[in-house]
Design a protein around this nucleic acid. Structure first.
Lengths: 204, 204
DNA sequence: TGACATATGGCACACTGTGACAAAAGGATG
DNA sequence: CATCCTTTTGTCACAGTGTGCCATATGTCA
């Protein structure tokens, strides 16, 4: 990896960190792109070359999480019940976050904290989740041999999985150490598994 | 009701209908507020007095649906299992849409059709759903006598209910008559009820 | 070093959304 | 109908996001 790419990655993270700190300090809405750009000494124009929008900053981890889930899902045997595969994919995300570098972990916790008191950001987050849901639904529909445009059970399976993910990460609100958050996430997965009828995801 | 209020309501619907038609015709992004305002012969400034944002147009039915759900929920006995109450609230929304005027029904179907091929609008829609979810969670937490900031099961119950709603309304894509859409919605509710373990929403 | 690819900055621009004030229209009263 | 008051509307100015375009600067490699 050349100097160029390393520098770019460094800049990208610098922007993200500066932005998150500003957001936590003075709120999301009242922080302008100009301020963020100023804090890392780049032009506003360059900011938009690293992040296509201000919103995109907050969705940093969603991009990565989606990747992890899709990879984990691809690794599961094709004849495994689909919801079981999805729960494994969820755990893969947990494992990934847990094994991340301290800097990544801090960023993760800050971004999570940012959602508190910013319903608009929760909305963004959920909207991005819907995009992931769509992609997962395609994979699951393919595995089940059905048309994703028509099959409701496929969408229900994926929606329940993503609901679990969302509840696990967002609830409880307020701060929390990484291990606390991850522990709650695991609890939520178990709660979901307890709540569903065995074999529900294998209906015709 | 005075002339004033009637005229306002008429303008509001004229804006909405003009906007939806323009969106379907030339896409959401490439339709400007100026165009919409021009089509109903008002100033762009006035547009923003009727709808706080362009996005808000698409969320027309969500506002109403949320109201219906909260009212229906308030009417359910307090000792009913929470998920059962929520499913009744969902059915109340279905009943409401079914009994709406032809003009409302047409608007509903057009807005639904608009979501096809506009992932951004699906995102908006889902984000607004998260807001509803938050409100429902408060009601359910109250009925269960738990703290909504901490109790995961409450959020899971509400999230599963909203997932059902979303899948029912959005899937299958493409056009469909009102009765087809409503029939699918009912099917989805039944599918969900079949998928969950009896009493799952009564865990400690 | 020179030549090339890529990253950046600066500029102009379109669009969304808001505050402030003046003009117009609705509604009530004599 | 004339008057007065309230609400709605339009105009203007402005802040902020996001994009296209072109010149410049920086890294990459021969």
């Amino acid at each position: 990896m050349g100097l160029r790419e390393r520098k770019k990655e460094k800049t990208r993270l610098a922007i993200l960190d500066a932005a998150v700190d500003l957001f936590l300090e003075q709120g999301y809405e009242s922080t302008t792109v100009e301020q963020i750009a100023g804090a890392v000494e780049i032009s506003p124009r360059t900011f938009f070359r690293y992040f296509t929008s201000k919103d995109h900053l907050v969705l940093w981890f969603h991009e990565h999480g989606e990747e992890i889930m899709l990879e984990a899902l691809a690794d599961r045997p094709g004849d495994e019940p689909p919801f079981t595969s999805l729960m494994h994919a969820m755990r893969a995300v947990v494992a990934d976050v847990e094994s991340s570098t301290p800097a990544d972990a801090e960023r993760f916790l800050k971004l999570r904290k940012l959602l508190d008191g910013h319903p608009h950001l929760v909305g963004l987050s959920v909207a991005r989740g819907a995009e992931t849901e769509r992609r997962l639904a395609e994979v699951i529909a393919d595995r089940r041999g059905v048309d994703p445009d028509v099959d409701q059970l496929t969408h229900l399976i994926v929606a329940f999985a993503m609901s679990t993910m969302r509840v696990g990460f967002e609830c409880p609100r307020r701060e929390g150490t990484m291990s606390e958050v991850m522990h709650r996430m695991t609890e939520t997965i178990e709660l979901t598994e307890r709540s569903l009828r065995p074999g529900w995801d294998l209906q015709h």
